[in-house]
Amino acid sequence: MHNNKYLRDEIIRISGADVSKCMRCGKCSATCPAYDEMEYHPHQFVNMVECGDIEPLLNSESLYKCLSCFACIDRCPRGVQPAKVVEAVRLTAIRKQGANHITADDIPAVVDADTPQQLLVSAFRKYTK
C-alpha cells in the first residue's frame, strides 16, 4: 500500500479532523446521501487518510460527489468529521495547477432558465480553485 506520510499529515492538518478517533462503525457511510455515486465512501476516506493511502482518493471522482451536507459530521459517534476529511483531500487535488474540476466553458451546457446563482457559486467553490 502506498503510504504518503507527508500528504497524510497535511490533510489531517488542514481538515482539523482527528481520524484516529474512528472506531469503524460505518455510520458516516450509512448516513451519506451520495453513497451510491461514490467509488470511495466516507468511512474509506477516513480510513485511507489514516493509513496514508491517499493517491487513489486524489484520483477518484468521489471527491466531487460529497454534498457537504454534514450529516456524517453530526451523526458520527466519535466526532471524526468525515466531511472535513473529504474536503481536505479535494482541496489537495484541486489546488494543483490546472486541476480545476470544472471550467466556465462547461456551464452554458448545464444551466437552464431556473438555475439559481447559488448553484453555480457553490459548484465553483467546491470544484475549482
Partner: peptide
C-alpha cells in the same frame, strides 16, 4: 433534514433527482 442533492445537480442531475 436530508440533503436534496445540493450543487451536485450541476454535474449529476440524476443523483440530485434521486434524493
Amino acid at each position: 433534514n436530508e440533503c436534496c442533492g445540493g450543487y451536485i445537480s450541476l454535474e449529476s442531475p440524476d443523483a440530485a433527482k434521486k434524493n
